[in-house]
Computed example of a mutant assay.
Amino acid sequence: MQNIPHSEKELLRLLADGDEYAFQVIFERHWDAVFSTALLLTKSATIAEDVAQDVFAMIWEKRATLAGVDSLDGFLFISARNMIYSRFRKLASQDAYRKYILSCFREDGAERVDDAAELRELDRTIQQAIRRLPPQQQKAFRLSRYEGMRHEEIAVTMGVSRITIKSYIVQAIASLRKALANHPSGAHLLVWAVFLFHS
């Protein structure tokens, strides 16, 4: 086991250098606080779980910029609050988004040829991105998204803690977001929302 830095600044410096263990330490130390904050603000355990997951995915994605953060607690609180506000703003357009997705399919249920081709190409891109994940992240992600296993079940299967599984999946999501960010498919948001980012 690696030595755990006592200094938050040192943890953030290691994180900025891409140290996955530093990320896991931060994740384990702060997950409960971020989740509790989101739960307090949203009154929904499901939304709070999603928001906390998004916060830590953002932390991993933007790790190179975090060495200068003075207060990690404050940074995480503000990040969670801003994500919640953004989520609530988007709820107003949710019905319009669902109608857009439905418009991608004919009334008889047959996909339009162009949309089907885009979805196949997107699936190939997703599979390639998953195969590039580190082995433990890849296994945790596949057990979650393909086998439908809960975090507790994956933890038992892989012989690690539930919080470690959450950490693996958050890092996998961050990596996949980056890999898919510039994908040209107009349907990618649907796949992200339903497949990749649903807890």
Results as ranks from 00 to 15, higher is better:
D108Y: 10
C104K: 05
H6N: 14
A92E: 02
K9L: 11
K139Q: 07
G148D: 00
E20W: 10
D123A: 13
K90A: 15
S185F: 03
D70E: 00
D19S: 15
A57F: 08
L133H: 00
T46V: 13
D17P: 12
S103Y: 04
S79H: 08
Q94V: 03
F56Y: 05
I173P: 06
R150G: 12
L119P: 01
V34L: 03
I78C: 01
K139S: 04
Q136S: 11
S103V: 04
S86P: 10
I59L: 05
I173M: 05
H183S: 03
R162M: 14
D17L: 14
E107V: 13
R98M: 03
S7M: 06
I169S: 10
D108W: 09
T157R: 15
F56D: 05
L12M: 07
V69P: 03
L143Y: 11
N182C: 02
Y100K: 06
A64S: 11
S175W: 04
A48Q: 07
V51E: 09
I154C: 08
E8T: 09
A193S: 04
L14C: 08
A140W: 08
S185D: 01
S167T: 06
F195H: 02
S185M: 02
G159R: 07
H183N: 05
L143A: 10
N182P: 02
F27A: 14
I59K: 00
V51Q: 12
I165G: 12
G68R: 00
E20K: 13
I47C: 07
R63S: 12
G68C: 04
G68Q: 00
Q127C: 10
Y100I: 00
V156T: 13
R106G: 15
P135N: 11
R112G: 10
R177D: 04
I173K: 07
G109W: 04
L189R: 05
I4H: 13
F56S: 05
E10I: 06
G109S: 08
S161G: 06
R120W: 10
L196A: 03
L133A: 07
F77Y: 08
N182L: 03
R89Y: 10
G18Q: 10
D73V: 00
R87M: 15
L143V: 09
M1I: 13
M149A: 15
V191R: 03
H198D: 07
